[in-house]
Simulated assay, not measured.
Amino acid sequence: MIKLSNIEKVYQTSNIETLALNNINIDIKKGEFVSIMGPSGCGKSTLLNIMGLLDEPSTGTIAIDNKPVEKFTDKDLAYLRNQKIGFIFQSFHLINDLSILDNVEIPLLYRASTNKSRREAAKEALEKVGLSNRMKHFPNQLSGGQKQRVAIARAIVGNPEIILADEPTGNLDSAMGNEILNILLQLNAAGSTIVMVTHDENMAKKTHRLIRLFDGSQVS
């Protein structure tokens, strides 16, 4: 599903060269739920961004469904992201001036779909995360846990095969964090391939596999 081979990522300024990722080799199989753990600054989010085709590696290769993406145009990459990948961010990234329903519809605006089909898909996604009664509310009327559920609904509205979650429970208390993890486990059981960055060892243990990073390198 996602294969990274010999990935390195170097950030360079006029005076400093920083090796963010060093010789990363990961093969995520279809239907897996994989956690990525490591201390702050070890390259977890950089790795997730590369998996999601939001960032390019300095060296190495990326393949999605056995198709190398190095020669893809920006338009091809944007299409692949929109069709196959759903993103969940720690800070939600909701638009406060839009209703919850409108926020969830956003990924579908880049597809050739009708207003009616977009609206129905957004309603269905919100029902899956238990927020069908909040569709007309705005983000500032929701709790942190509810905002994260909206972010999950937005990530799954286009039925992506892959869900990439960057600290999806990081801003939540333990009870709400477990609620969010249970939603992800349900999505995985329904067939979604999920990669989750987390600091929570107990949550990581509930996934299929754990990848640890330290100073940009895999340590397990």
Rank of each mutant, 00 (worst) to 15 (best):
K3P: 00
L4F: 03
E8V: 08
V10R: 00
T13F: 12
S14R: 06
S14P: 00
N15G: 07
E17Y: 08
E17F: 10
T18W: 08
T18P: 02
L19V: 10
A20V: 13
N22P: 03
N22F: 12
N23W: 12
N23V: 07
I24D: 00
I28R: 03
G31Y: 09
G31W: 08
E32C: 05
S35E: 11
I36L: 10
G38W: 07
T46V: 10
L48H: 05
N49T: 05
I50A: 07
M51F: 11
S58G: 11
S58H: 03
S58R: 08
T59C: 15
I62S: 13
A63Y: 05
K67A: 08
P68S: 11
E70K: 09
E70D: 12
K75H: 14
A78M: 05
N82S: 11
Q83D: 15
K84M: 04
I85C: 00
F89N: 13
F89W: 13
Q90P: 00
F92N: 08
F92A: 05
L94P: 05
I95K: 03
N96C: 04
D97R: 07
L101R: 01
L108Y: 03
Y110G: 00
T114D: 01
K116H: 05
K123F: 11
E124Q: 07
A125F: 07
E127P: 02
K128H: 04
K128R: 10
N133K: 14
N133F: 11
K136I: 09
Q141V: 07
G145P: 01
Q146Y: 04
R149I: 05
V150E: 02
V150S: 03
P160S: 10
E161I: 03
I163L: 15
I163D: 04
N171Y: 04
S174T: 14
M176G: 02
N178K: 05
L187D: 12
T193Y: 08
V195I: 14
V197R: 02
D200Y: 04
D200S: 08
D200M: 01
E201N: 07
N202S: 15
M203S: 05
A204R: 03
K205D: 13
I211S: 02
I211T: 04
I211H: 09
R212V: 03
D215A: 10
S217F: 01
S217A: 15
V219A: 13
